[in-house]
């Protein structure tokens, strides 16, 4: 059993505006093995709040949450070691600046594992491994994390969480601010980690192309409600995603437009550019 949300709501309180409910009555189940899930929704729909619940960084205002057998309620329970939950569910924040602080990349990656009573030598080994996993070579180990480029910083921050060897990995917009090629490399990497280690990976993203191409399960948030939970194909084929303030993937948009303008009868649900191109060729030849 991985993570289960039971009627979870969360409200932010502020002095001037009173209570603002970020997520409402969420019911959700995530198993700890072999899932590859996209979490989508417009800005302010409660995606990040939902993600912060997954490793008990914040507690639900109402409802309960079960994470690897620990029951999380609205109060801090002294019997629960919250650090254990964070070891099992790793959360990578959107901006690497919030977590990088050591003078070398190696030390920074070691910070996570060392908090979980792992020896220095072991942590060093883990740092090397996880840096390789995110596609950076050993020459980065001795560099200063603040002198890296945006994409490299992002990879280092992901490596910092990977080194903790969590069972479930949650990433808050890991591809934001990267160029298209960089996005794909990173997504391939996550897919690869998911397939080789069987870790469940949950990724928050705004990029519908990536969602359609890579993920088999998708969660859609809209105004704090979980609107959709199911197969990615089902989302784009059966639902009108514009209702959720989302966009269609480019392949679907282009093929739909061509169908309309040229009176063709193509199957618009093609995941990659290559597949879309093949479909167009097939339609034009006929």
């Amino acid at each position: 059993m991985g993570i289960r949300f039971n009627e979870v709501s969360y409200g932010y309180s502020s002095f001037a505006q009173g209570l603002y409910t970020a997520i409402k009555d969420i019911n959700l189940e995530i198993t700890e093995k072999n899932e590859f899930i996209a979490l989508v929704g417009h800005t302010g729909s409660g995606k990040s709040t939902l993600a912060k619940h997954m490793n008990a960084l914040i507690f639900p205002t109402s409802g309960t949450l079960e994470i690897f057998g620990h029951t999380i309620t609205n109060k801090r329970n002294k019997k629960i070691k919250y650090n254990d939950i964070r070891k099992k569910v790793g959360l990578v924040f959107q901006f690497p600046e919030y977590q990088l602080f050591e003078e070398t990349v190696e030390k920074d990656i070691m910070f996570g594992p060392m908090n979980f009573q792992i020896t220095k030598e072991e942590a060093k080994k883990l740092a090397k491994q996880s840096l390789k996993l995110v596609g950076l070579d050993d020459s980065y180990l001795s560099r200063n994390p603040y002198n890296l480029s945006g994409g490299e910083k992002k990879r280092v921050s992901i490596a910092g969480i990977l080194a903790m060897d969590p069972d479930i990995l949650v990433l808050d917009e890991p591809t934001s601010g990267l160029d298209p090629a960089g996005k794909r490399i990173l997504m391939d990497l996550f897919k690869n980690i998911n397939e080789t280690t069987g870790k469940t990976i949950i990724i928050i993203t705004h990029d519908m192309d990536l969602v359609y191409q890579y993920f088999n399960r998708v969660l859609v948030m809209n105004d704090g409600h979980l609107m959709f939970d199911g197969k990615t194909e089902a989302l784009f084929q059966k639902e009108d995603v514009t209702d959720y303030h989302l966009d269609y993937p480019n392949t679907i948009k282009v093929l739909k437009y061509l169908n309309q303008e040229l009176n063709l009868n193509m199957n618009v649900f093609q995941k990659t550019t290559a597949e879309a191109l093949a479909e167009i060729k097939r339609a034009v030849k006929l």
Binding site: L57, N83, R86, F93, Q99, F111, N115, F116, M164
Partner: peptide
């Protein structure tokens, strides 16, 4: 929060 999720 970011450091808490790294075990701090």
């Amino acid at each position: 929060l970011a450091q808490a999720s790294r075990g701090a």
